[in-house]
Design a protein around this nucleic acid. Structure first.
Lengths: 202, 202, 202, 202
DNA sequence: AATGAATGAGAATTCATTCAT
DNA sequence: AATGAATGAATTCTCATTCAT
């Protein structure tokens, strides 16, 4: 009997190495050879765990999703007030590309693939789930704020969640490119105050 | 020095063909041969106008900027009320990837390159200018709204402009990936109303 | 030594699965993994029964020989007259590639290997036996025709058998490639009549 | 202006090198690298002349056709009597694999590809033309024999030509595999005499 | 005896870039 | 100035075979 390998966990293990490389050089510019070399295995073994290069992306997306979520959760840890949570999310989210540039590079790569509709079914499905779940997390926070009477009941939590999430992504991108010329904290603070004003009970 | 002028305009001419191809297939997946073939010239001639493949990107960014700006201007044409202009900008901007998917593909490609800091100096400078100028256009509209007493004087037009621009980019991306599951018009409308509420005189 | 017997019969069993695959995709394009998968065994086990990939070919040749022979016998079943048997052999043989294309693909693959002298000793020996035995079957029919006074005693049954067998193979090939443009039945009929004329008592 | 190359003649030149290699090792077992190495050029240059590996086969088939035809013509040169020509054709044809084993190996490779219908349109068309033209040459000789009253007018020259060509191919194959055990000259002589008997005026 | 994990040589193909003309 | 012929490094992927368990 040969050594029995947990294919699922080895997939994840390889994907973790791949993620590092994709983050550094992008998906297209990372060769299978590099991935397997870093994982300390033979080139051919890759294909025992992934049907082709594309296949590893969906695994990496899942990994990034987990990493991303853990990051956000750690940022929100200790913040109790729902409104403060939203503000933190915006501020910290916008700066994510600063602290975790490698993740951001991978993230944009994924956006690019997804926009071009080049990815596999599995890849696209996973990425969409990621986006939708992120939105749900934010919507839940807004609902809590509503429940605590901090903002109007009429506020559409889904709409605000969608826009906040999109805004975080947008700011993240802009901040990365314009970094020194932008006071990201001030911008987030001021904008959030203005939006909050609009969400409060008149 | 008429020869110099020729070089410059030929650069632009070639870049226009390149832009079409980059928009279709992305930068990496477009071969020099394809560009020169479409431009009706020999493959080697490319290197008389660009030092390498990377070099053509900065030219293309400028072109995209012009195209992009003209697009936005045409969308805003006829809209007189500054607030309506902002709303239109948001709504139409978010849907740009729908109507002009090819431009969007190119746009994300450029974001990717820029975030990775892989581009040339010239390329990055041009892209930054593009972002800053876009923001300025929006800020001017907000200033007009302030001048007409539609919103509070205290509103920071630069901050709101920055966030709106970033939001447009973010929504654009999300919309492209989640298209069928998102009521983009409704979202933009509701969000803008809320934000506006926060910007109005109490 | 029951184990020995097991090995032999398992060889044949595996070879039967291999034959199907070789017939479909050719020897070179069939992977060991496909064979073992279809045989419901582990990939490594293959090498407990065959020294290498080449080794399975000789087993397959033998199998094909049996299949082939059964096919011919079934075609001749019911035909009593030796001359009619020869005619049937020619007609049906030439059309074999039509009805049993998969066998034909395998057959040509084997010819190719044999002509190139790339095969193992065992493989070549088996293939030669196959050809010689086929000839013998035909020669026997001719002898019967001679015995019944249908053709001249002077006819060299070995020569005619050799040429008829070769002709069947040749026609089979040509028919497969030129199929729609060839009236194979008419050709066989006319040719056989002419040859028969030459074999009959003057 | 760069060096101007006659693409058509260079194609043929490369194909000639390829033919040698295909003849030795078969199409599948010949790497592009080997072809270009023998042709004294870089690996990439191959694709300036052929769209892919398959593409060179049709060129090689044409080459083989020419070589084959010249061979047959040289064999028939000096033979005036049409019947003798047919006999020569049969005898020499059957032995072709002996003298020109390399061509034969290539020939069987081509048969294999054609039977499997794996080849490109161009390849298949060329091979079919080759077969049909060969048949026509033989049919013409038979017509001449008829014209000179050597055989019955009623003989169907097309049918006999088709079978003779097929027989040559079949014998060639059998002879290559069974060589030492076969008196090919005797077989051809005897068979042809018998067939001739059937074709003569009663 | 049986197995499947691991391997790496080797295949076809692409393409930015150079350079002789 | 313009060109296209030539190149070779690099890429993805396949698969017969080995071997530890």
């Amino acid at each position: 009997m040969p050594k029995i390998v947990d294919k699922v966990s080895k997939r994840k293990e390889i994907a973790r190495f791949a993620m590092e490389l994709f983050a550094q050089n992008g998906f297209d510019r990372t060769a299978i050879r590099e991935i397997t070399a870093r994982a300390g295995m033979g080139k051919g073994t890759f294909y025992d765990y992934f049907v082709n290069k594309e296949d590893i992306l969906s695994e990496v997306v899942q990994l990034m999703f987990i990493e991303w979520t853990e990051l956000i959760i750690s940022k929100l840890k200790g913040v109790k007030d729902p409104l403060m949570q939203l503000e933190t999310l915006l501020k910290e989210g916008a700066k994510l590309g600063d602290e975790f540039k490698h993740l951001m590079i991978l993230y944009v790569d994924i956006w690019r693939r997804s926009v071009r509709k080049k990815g596999s079914k599995k890849f696209n499905r996973r990425f969409q789930s990621f986006l939708l779940e992120s939105k749900k997390v934010v919507a839940d926070i807004i609902e809590k704020a509503k429940a605590q009477g901090m903002i109007r009941k009429a506020v559409d939590s889904d709409v605000i969640a969608t826009t906040l999430i999109a805004l975080v992504d947008g700011l993240c991108l802009h901040y990365m490119v314009l970094k020194p010329e932008i006071d990201i904290d001030g911008i987030c603070q001021t904008f959030f105050d203005t939006l909050l004003q609009g969400m409060k009970e008149k």
